[in-house]
Computed example of a mutant assay.
Amino acid sequence: MITPRAARPEDAGELVRLRRLMYLAMDGRDRPGRWERDAEEAARRQLAGPDARLIGFVVDGAVDGDAPAPHLAACALGWIDERLPSPAQPSGRVGFVFNVCTDPRYRGRGHARATTEALLGRFAALGVGRVDLHATDAAVPLYRSLGFAEHGTPLTLDLHRRPGVGPD
């Protein structure tokens, strides 16, 4: 049986390692860089404290079957955003699932499902009324089996800006 545990600030380095593996699996490109150090610092800070909006669940790796390993096997992270309540979202709380990744050594064992289910359970306990995510084609069947469906919003726009660069 897979038993996820809550991610802790001291897991930050491993969460970033898994994040890098996730990006590699998505497009086949390895992208080391400063972002890793910045992401580790942000994860450590954002996982700390009782009011942390970054929530994560992890599965510890194992060596020789059951002995704990110094690495994580899998993770699922999520963020809680609090917006103004609305008729459709009375709590105003919206969750976003991201950084769902399983180390290649542990794939195919249900780790992504276990960590994502734990995350969704925590969201529900905190009154999160809606949960969004972006899925790769390979992950769509998992998310559909957990109840996710296509967004009802016909148009989604993103704006990406480099820090310090504003409109002309």
Rank of each mutant, 00 (worst) to 15 (best):
R34Q: 09
S145G: 14
A52S: 14
D158F: 01
D137S: 12
R20P: 05
A62Y: 10
R162F: 12
D30C: 08
H160F: 03
D30Q: 08
R5H: 14
I55L: 10
R17E: 06
G78E: 01
G127Y: 09
L21H: 02
I2Y: 00
F98L: 13
A114P: 05
Y143A: 03
R130F: 13
L142P: 14
E14F: 12
P90G: 04
V59M: 02
G127I: 09
G61Y: 07
V128S: 07
T102P: 00
D132S: 12
V63N: 03
S91Y: 06
R105C: 01
A112L: 03
R44H: 11
L142V: 01
A48C: 04
D103A: 01
L72I: 02
A149H: 09
R105L: 05
Y106V: 00
L155Y: 05
R5P: 13
L142Q: 08
L126R: 14
S86I: 01
A42K: 14
G13Q: 10
R34W: 09
T116H: 10
L24C: 07
G92R: 03
D11Y: 12
I2N: 10
Y143R: 02
D132Q: 11
F98N: 12
H71G: 03
Y106Q: 00
G78C: 02
A88F: 07
V100H: 11
R20W: 15
L47H: 10
R8W: 12
A43Q: 10
D30Y: 06
E36M: 09
V97W: 08
E40L: 12
L159E: 02
V59I: 15
L54A: 11
